[in-house]
Structures are given as structure tokens and as C-alpha cells.
Design a protein around this nucleic acid. Sequence first.
DNA 1: CGAACTACCCCGCGTGACGATGTAGTCGCA
DNA 2: TGCGACTACATCGTCACGCGGGGTAGTTCG
Lengths: 111, 111
Amino acid sequence: MGRSQLLKGTTTLLVLAVLREGELYGYEIAARIRERSAAFIDPGEGWLYPALHRLEAAGALEASWRESGIGPRRRYYRLTRTGTRMLEAEASEWESFARSVRLVAGGPADA
Amino acid sequence: MGRSQLLKGTTTLLVLAVLREGELYGYEIAARIRERSAAFIDPGEGWLYPALHRLEAAGALEASWRESGIGPRRRYYRLTRTGTRMLEAEASEWESFARSVRLVAGGPADA
DNA sequence: CGAACTACCCCGCGTGACGATGTAGTCGCA
DNA sequence: TGCGACTACATCGTCACGCGGGGTAGTTCG
């Protein structure tokens, strides 16, 4: 039950980051995050889709339905200009925070 | 409102980490965290004291009141054996998580 | 039925405002 | 000058609130 809370605040970054490469649909976004994190982060549907909606509502993402031909329709998401800026902001925010934690947790004399 | 949620799950690590050097009282713990993080992390009393109590109840910390002679009484906390182990666990958990985030957010071809 | 996606409620815990206690320092006023 | 009132600050604490991840059931379509 350790990292259960760690995710808070990073989901936006994670989602936006994998979308940097281009359009992806929900299921695929989850898969990318899982792969990239070496299965350490396993996106639950419970927060992934709400996160996508938040980001879409915030103007960071644009979405469009598309037939897959082989299965249900898929909703593809892509970064908007706003989303790209948000990604950069989130990334640097995370960087600062992670460094701070490292400074505190790293001990008295270390980097 | 960026880093608002990032703290979640790291408070235990932060508190235990600064106590690695020896006994400290609450107010001082907050100050240490603030200093070490270059003021990036500013511990709120609203989570610091509850966290201390949680950790004490969990057997990770031992506490004792002590007169300071110059001001209100202080409650000094120190790590127990359990707390040390918990610190190590939290630290490695954080490390893994941080690396995962970096892997995902770092982009397609980068470390 | 199963893949892709949605909706909804639960709840831990950080947030911010506030309070209580204790000491030192300052200022007023005779 | 002396002494109490009043302020400033250190220290510990509580509480209501809200965000957002967790879990899970529901929906649609092939």
C-alpha cells in the first residue's frame, strides 16, 4: 500500500507524456505507461478515463472517435498546444519536487 | 495548484529521513525539511503532527516530552528499529516510483 | 462473451484555518 | 525605575474540506 498515494499529482504528467509521441486511445495509453514504467505503474481505468476527461475539459487534449474495424470504436486523444505547455510545466514541477525529496531523503551530506 | 498533490505518500519518507540524524522535535522537523528542500517543501502543521502521531502509533517513532527551559515544552521524536526499516522501505519505494515516472515522462529515447 | 470505454462512490490524506499554551520582549504609566 | 499589560513568536495540536486515485459495476458494439 505504499505507492498508492504517490501517484497523486503525477497522473497528468504521465498521460500527457505518453501522448507526446502522437495520438493514442485510452487502452493504449494505459499500456504505454505500464510498459515504460516496467510494469511498476499500472493505470487503473478508474482514474485513467476521468483524467482524460479532465484534461480534455481543460483544453489540454483533443479527442475523436474512430472505428477500428476490428472491435469497438476507439477514442483517440492528442495533445493541443495548451497540453504541450502543460506537459512542460508538469514535467519541470515534478523535476523540482523529485529533487527536493531527494535532497531531504538523501541524507545530510549527499546529492 | 501544481504540486498540491505531489506530496501525497512522501510525507512518511520525509519525516523519517530527517530523523535519521537523531532526535528532533516537531517544529524543528518542519524547519529541517524546509531548509533541506530549499524551501520548496513547506510542511503544514495540518499534516506534520498527524503524521508524527501516525508514525508513533505505528511503532516507527518514539517520543518524549522535554522542557526546553526557554519556551513551550517540546516533543522529541526518534526512530525506532521499526522506523529505520520503514525508512529504508519508503526510500526504495520512492526511488522506484521516481524512476518509473522518469521513464515514462522522460520521452521515447532518453534516460 | 469480450474489448474498449464510462460512471459512480469511497476514502486516505494533504490543505488551510484556527486554537491553546508558554516565554520573552516591549511599552505604558505612576 | 518598576511592574503589569500587551505583543511577538515558538511549539503542539485539532478540524472541516476537497482533490483525486481505487474499485467496480454498467454500457456499447462486434
